[in-house]
Amino acid sequence: MRSWLYTPANNPGRMIHAGIYGADGVVFDLEDSIAPGEKDEARLLLEEMLPVIQDALDEQGILCRIAIRINALDTPWWKADVESSLKAGARILRVPKIESPRGIEELSVYLTDVEFRLGLQEGSTTIQALIETPRGVEQAFAIGDASPRVVAFSFGAEDYCAAIGVRRKEATLALDYPRARIASAAAACHVEAYDSVWGFLDDPKGLAEDAARAHALGFHGKSTIHPNQIATIHTVFSYSPQELEEAQRIIDAVAQDNSGVMSSFGRMIDKPVVAWAMQVMKTSGSSR
């Protein structure tokens, strides 16, 4: 998944269109973009609209995953958020400010309960853990390893920068460490890693650079708050024609010679290289 478009869950006009801009996924937000007094209203709207939105996307043949960002587990709202999300048909929850495996475990237990009550298959709801603090970064592997429900990490750079006292726009170097750590933990846990939003809408060059940095450190995609950023994000997080060609060449070479280590066009091809090529072709969906 290359892109996740955040959309407030209290704005029907924006919600109805959110899936058609080409993002790989949409995150309907019950957290920061909804004022405390409007949480109930947003949940009701979500329950009403999500099936309609999903039907419309299906009818148009648009493959766009839908996730819900619930409120953090230290708030009084998260349980109601979970119930509404599952009733609405969502099966991916993005959970803010996860700092330890305990949060994931608590959420998993509650999810199992709600799934049972709603007649859903146990374990069918997955979790994207939002890691937004230095403590969360240090715990990334444990968080990812805490439950098979965890399918991805999402990095929240704004809060991280605030915690370490740097400005987001000038934080390229400061973000290398958490990004690398999260990406590495994601790989260790066999989950995906999505980078933080780039909130400077009038700086498309900055967006491309920020995305490229995250991509180079091992992230699979990036969240966004504006549809006009999707194309840039996809460009950065898609494999280039050269990468696809190289991956296909490696797979072709392996198909002709199963002897283990070999070389092709001057490059040694061993198991990790083959794994990379398989991953490229699987992700791009273009293996012959």
Partner: peptide, 8 residues
Amino acid sequence: SQNPMEMV
């Protein structure tokens, strides 16, 4: 226009 809908 910067309207993403119009861009689509």
